[in-house]
Design a protein around this nucleic acid. Structure first.
Length: 292
DNA sequence: TGCCAGGCAGACA
DNA sequence: TGTCTGCATGGC
C-alpha cells in the first residue's frame, strides 16, 4: 500500500516558475485532479497518487510534492511537461492572442494517458465540465481497480483512503451497454464500448500514435475511425493525450473567439508548432476572464 | 422549469 | 459537399 506522509515533502525549485497549478489542473484538459486545499492538488499518475502544492520560500516560488525526488524527475516533471519551451511568436497585431498568453501563462499541457484522454473527451461532447467530472468519477468508481493509500497527517495519525483507477480498455470491452446504466453517459455509452473494443483488439494503437515520429494529422485520421470521435474530440485527444502540441481543437468556445475576434477565420499555423498551447490559453482566457 | 454544455452521426438536398 | 436535426443526462 502506497504511503503519503504529509510531514515529509520534497521541495522543488527547478521549473516552479513555469507552472501555475490552478490554471493547469482547472483549464479543462483533465478531469480527475482535485483541489484539496488553497495551494494543493491531488491526482494520479500511472495509478500512483501524488499531492502537488505551491508555496513561497524566501520570496521564491517553489513546488512541494509527496513524491520522491526520483519520482519527480522520472515521472512528474515529464507529466507536467516542464522541460518543453512554450515560447510562442504571436503576430504583433494579434491583440486577443497576446492577452490570452498573458492571462494563461503557467498552463502546462499535461502528458496524460491516451486511453483515459480518449474516453474522457468522448464523454465531454455536449456536456459541461462539472458533468464530465461526475460521469468520469462514476465510471472509475464502478469499473476501476480499487487502490488504497495510507495517509499520515501532520499529527502522525494514519488514515486509509481508497481511490479508483481509470478502467482499462480490456475491462470496459467486457461490458454490455446495460452495465453502463446509472453512469450518466447517455447516448455516448456505445461510443465508449466501441472505443474499448477497438483498443483491446488492436484496431487502434494509442501508444504507437503517441510516438514522436507520428504526425498529429495521422493520429487524428486514426482516431476518427472510431464511432463517436469527430474532429473536435480527435484534436483534443491528439493534444492532451498524444502530446501533439501543434493540434488546435475548435470547440464552441474557440469558434466563438474566431467569430468575435478573427472575423470568422483563423489559421492556427500562425502560432507555430505550439499552437495547441495557444488554443488552451485562449480557451482558459475566454472562459475565466471578463472578456467572455 | 428550462436552458445549455470542450459534438457527433445520419439524413437530406 | 454542406446543412440540418436528434440525441441522454444533469448542473445551474
Amino acid at each position: 500500500m502506497k504511503t503519503i506522509d504529509l510531514s515529509n515533502w520534497t521541495y522543488i525549485k527547478d521549473g516552479a516558475d513555469k507552472i501555475d497549478l490552478d490554471k493547469t489542473f482547472d483549464c479543462g484538459q483533465c478531469f480527475r485532479w482535485i483541489k484539496i486545499d488553497e495551494h494543493t492538488w491531488q491526482g494520479a499518475i500511472q495509478d500512483n497518487i501524488y499531492l502537488i502544492s505551491e508555496d513561497i520560500v524566501s520570496g521564491q516560488k517553489i513546488l512541494k510534492t509527496t513524491a520522491s525526488i526520483t519520482e519527480w524527475n522520472d515521472i512528474i516533471k515529464l507529466y507536467l511537461d516542464l522541460d518543453t519551451d512554450y515560447t510562442i511568436n504571436v503576430p504583433s497585431n494579434d491583440t486577443f492572442a497576446k492577452s490570452a498568453v498573458k492571462y494563461g501563462n503557467g498552463i502546462r499541457i499535461l502528458q496524460q494517458d491516451p486511453w483515459e484522454t480518449l474516453i474522457s473527451f468522448i464523454i465531454s461532447q455536449r456536456n459541461n465540465i462539472p458533468k464530465i467530472k461526475t460521469t468520469i468519477s462514476k465510471l472509475c468508481d464502478s469499473f476501476g481497480d480499487t487502490l488504497s493509500i495510507k495517509i499520515i497527517d501532520l499529527n502522525g495519525e494514519t488514515k486509509v483512503k481508497t481511490w479508483h483507477s481509470f478502467p482499462t480498455a480490456d475491462k470496459l470491452a467486457e461490458l454490455d451497454v446495460s452495465d453502463l446504466n446509472g453512469i450518466g453517459l447517455g447516448y455516448r455509452d456505445e461510443y465508449i464500448l466501441g472505443a474499448a473494443k477497438a483498443v483491446k483488439h488492436c484496431k487502434i494503437n494509442l501508444e504507437k500514435l503517441r510516438g514522436t515520429n507520428v504526425s498529429g494529422e495521422y493520429a487524428i485520421d486514426n482516431l476518427m475511425q472510431l464511432n463517436g470521435v469527430g474532429p473536435k474530440v480527435a484534436n483534443c485527444v491528439a493534444l492532451f493525450g498524444l502530446h501533439k502540441l501543434d493540434m488546435f481543437p475548435i470547440d464552441v468556445w474557440i469558434q466563438r473567439i474566431i467569430d468575435r475576434y478573427y472575423s470568422g477565420s483563423l489559421d492556427p499555423k500562425v502560432y507555430g508548432d505550439k499552437s495547441g498551447v495557444m488554443q488552451q490559453y485562449m480557451f482558459y482566457y475566454i472562459k475565466h476572464s471578463s472578456g467572455r
